Each structure stands twice: as structure tokens, then as C-alpha cells.
Simulated assay, not measured.
Amino acid sequence: MTGHEYGRLAYLGLLALALVLWFFFRDRTRLGLKLQYLGVWALILLGAIAAVGLWGDIRQTVMPQQAVFAEDGRVALPRAPDGHYYVSLDLNGVPTRFVVDTGATGMVLSRNDAERAGLTPDQLIFRGQANTANGMVRTAPVRLESVGLGPFTDRNVRAYVNEGEMRTSLLGMSYLQRFDRLEISNGQLILER
């Protein structure tokens, strides 16, 4: 925080203190009742702060996760609150989160995910181009030794590394076509082989 922000915070704190003191000393006959009200409001404020601070953990706990049904040869991906479907794949043995993108032609890795999967950033040659929602970006073609999803493992999988900034890697149709069936039903994306 800057000095200006600290000053603003101090001003607001003094203003709140003045309002609380005015509230209490305006009518001293019901001081006990006012203290009870102040305690209730303090607990409500504390609860709200705790809920906001823990929301990410709470959401991860109650949000459905991807389910693998190995005996049936299928994977069920729940729709996330943002409306997308996310899947965790093992790239060269490293768990990596993808957003399923049926509008993407190929599997597109962020630079961070590519590096985590063992692809050396210095050896990437960005000679391709892709047209994205953010405009044209340069891409580097790569081959992944293994891509695993539950009981399914594919070898020598073609992918691309995006030179631009990406929060999450994209799982496009080149990988999704390896499945016999893709179905969206009851808030789930079902992949089946």
C-alpha cells in the first residue's frame, strides 16, 4: 500500500470510530443493549470476511471433480461454475490442467505447462501461427512422449506451445478425436473410448 492509501485508511478508521462513539454516547441509558448490537455486527462482519477469504477453498471442496470410470472406458467432466469443462491430463507424467475447447484445432500448451512437462523453452521454434480470439499468435510444434487421462495413455502426441500469455492450456479437437464418443448431458462432458 502507498502512503496515500494508508492516509485514506486512517481517515476512514477515524470516521468510523467517531460514528461508533457518537452512537454510544448519544443515549447512555441503553449502553448494554448497544454493546450487544455492536458484538452482533462485529460477528457478522468477521463471518463475511472469513467467507470471502475462504471462498476459493470452499468452492474447490464442494465443486464436483472429474470422474474416471475405467471399467466403462469413459471419463466424466463436470461443468465448472464459469460454464467451461476442465480436465487434468498427465503430460509426460506431470499433471496439467486444460480447458476443453472444441473450437481449437490442436492441443495448445501454455509456456509454463510446456516447461513443466519437460519441454526446454530454449529449444522451442515458434514458426507456426494460430488465429485466436486475441489475434494472431506464434506457435511452436512439439511432440509429447505420453498423454494420460485415467486409464487411457497416448504416445507421441502432437501439440503446440503458444508464445503468448495463456492462463490455461487448451485441449482441442486433435486430442478429443481420439475418443469414440463425446457427449454433453446433465452438466457433464462424457468422453468414451
Rank of each mutant, 00 (worst) to 15 (best):
G3V: 02
G187E: 01
G47P: 00
D122Q: 14
E163F: 03
P151V: 02
Q188P: 01
D27I: 06
A76L: 15
G150Y: 00
L33F: 02
A51F: 13
R178A: 07
E5S: 12
A48W: 13
N156F: 00
L17P: 04
E165G: 06
A51D: 09
R30Y: 09
A76V: 11
R181L: 08
S169D: 00
L21A: 15
F23A: 15
A130Q: 08
L45F: 10
I184V: 14
L19M: 11
G3H: 01
Y175R: 01
A48P: 03
N134Y: 03
P141D: 03
E192D: 10
R59E: 14
N92C: 11
L15S: 08
Y11E: 12
T2N: 15
V94L: 12
E5C: 09
S88R: 15
L124K: 02
L176I: 09
F152W: 10
A50G: 12
S169P: 02
L144Q: 05
T29H: 15
Y86T: 10
D154H: 08
N92G: 13
D101F: 00
R79D: 04
Y86D: 10
I58N: 03
M63A: 13
W22F: 11
P81H: 06
V142F: 08
E163C: 02
Q188K: 12
R158A: 13
A133M: 11
L19K: 07
M166P: 07
R28Y: 05
D82H: 10
L91Q: 13
L15V: 14
T29M: 13
R158H: 07
N186W: 01
L46D: 04
D82A: 07
Q129D: 07
G32H: 13
T102L: 08
A67H: 05
W41A: 14
L119Y: 00
V75N: 03
P78C: 08
L77H: 02
A42Y: 07
R178F: 08
S110G: 07
G3W: 00
V99G: 07
T105W: 06
G7C: 11
V147K: 02
Y86W: 11
L91S: 11
V161G: 08
R97Q: 13
D57Y: 11
D180P: 04
Y85R: 01
P78W: 00
M166W: 06
L46N: 07
G47W: 08
L171N: 00
G56F: 00
T29P: 02
S146D: 02
T61S: 14
D180M: 06
G103R: 00
V137E: 04
G106Q: 01
T102Y: 02
D72N: 09
G164D: 15
V68M: 12
R193Y: 08
P121I: 14
G164Y: 11
L38D: 00
R193L: 10
R116K: 15
L189T: 05
V99Y: 05
L12E: 09
I190G: 10
E192A: 15
E163I: 04
S185M: 06
